[in-house]
Design a protein around this nucleic acid. Structure first.
Lengths: 136, 136
DNA sequence: AAAATAACTTGCAATTTGCAAGTAGTTTAA
DNA sequence: TTAAACTACTTGCAAATTGCAAGTTATTTT
C-alpha cells in the first residue's frame, strides 16, 4: 500500500519521501492549527481532498508515525487524529513556509496576524505552540 | 503546460502548489548547495530524476520565478540555472527540514556537520549563506 | 426501526511520473 | 575539417498516482 522507497540519504529527499506529496502537509497543517481532527474535519477543509486520497494519506502518515489515531470521547463512530511528537516537530518547517508565503502571496488576515506574532519572538512562539499541541 | 491552480488561499497550500511536488525541492536543494547547476548537474544527482521530469520542473520553477537561466561563461551548449531571490528565500524552509530530518533519520556526515553549524547561530548562518548565494 | 452520520472502500477515468529512445545545436579530438 | 561526443532538451508509451462518484459498514440520532 504505502511505499517506503527512499530515493537517497539526503535529508530533504528522505523527508519528501514521507510527507512530500500534494496533500500530506495540508493534513499536518490542519492538525497543527486545530490540534485534533476527525476524518470529516479534513474533508471539510477548503482544498477539498478526495475521500480515498485522504484515507491513504492518513494511513501513510500513521505508518510513518507523524500522526496517531485516538478514540473519540463522544462517539464510537468517530475517530480523532492527532500529531505525534514527530509530527509536531514539523512546526518550524510549517512556520517558515508561512513566512515565505507571506512575502510572495497575499494571505488571509488571520495568518498574517499569526506571522506577525511569530516574528516578534520565533523561539518563544514555537515553544508555546508545541506546548499547546502536546497538552492532553 | 504548467498549471497554476491554486487550491486555496492558505499559504501552505499555495506554496505546495508551486514547489510541493516530488522533485522541485530537490532541484532547489541542489541550487542551494551548489549555487549554480547545469542541466547535467541535476541529472547527476543521487535521486536520478528523469530527463523529461527535470525539463518540466525547471520550466515551472522558472515560470514561478524561483529560478533563472543564465548563459554559461564557457560554452554556448551549456545553460546555468540559479536561484532567484524568491528561491533563495526558501533557505530557512530547507534548513528546518534538515533539522527535522536530523532528528528522525540518519544523515550523511557532511549534512550533520552543517546542521551543527546552523544550531550554533541560525540567523547568522542563514544570513551568510544567503550572501554567498547572492554573490555574482 | 428508519434515516442520517462517520469513516472509510471500490471502480474507473484523468493526470502525472518514469523509462527509453530520439533530436538539434555545440564542442572536441583526429 | 569533419566525425564523434556532449549538452540540453523532446517524444512516445507504459506504469503509477490522483480524482470523482458511488458504494459499504458501523454507529447514532429521530
Amino acid at each position: 500500500m504505502t511505499d517506503i522507497k527512499k530515493r537517497s540519504d539526503c535529508p530533504i529527499s528522505s523527508s519528501l519521501d514521507i510527507w512530500g506529496d500534494k496533500w500530506s502537509l495540508l493534513i499536518i497543517r490542519d492538525l497543527m492549527f486545530k490540534k485534533e481532527c476527525t476524518y470529516g474535519d479534513f474533508i471539510k477543509a477548503e482544498e477539498k481532498i478526495a475521500t480515498n486520497i485522504l484515507a491513504s494519506r492518513l494511513q501513510s502518515l500513521e505508518e510513518n508515525a507523524l500522526i496517531e489515531k485516538l478514540d473519540h470521547p463522544d462517539s464510537k463512530a468517530k475517530v480523532l487524529y492527532r500529531l505525534t511528537e514527530k509530527g509536531i516537530d514539523l512546526l518550524p518547517v510549517m512556520i517558515e513556509i508561512n513566512i515565505w508565503a507571506n512575502k510572495y502571496f497575499s494571505l488571509p488576515e488571520d495568518r498574517k496576524a499569526m506571522i506577525k506574532e511569530v516574528k516578534k519572538d520565533k523561539k518563544k512562539f514555537i515553544k508555546s505552540w508545541i506546548k499547546e499541541l502536546k497538552k492532553v
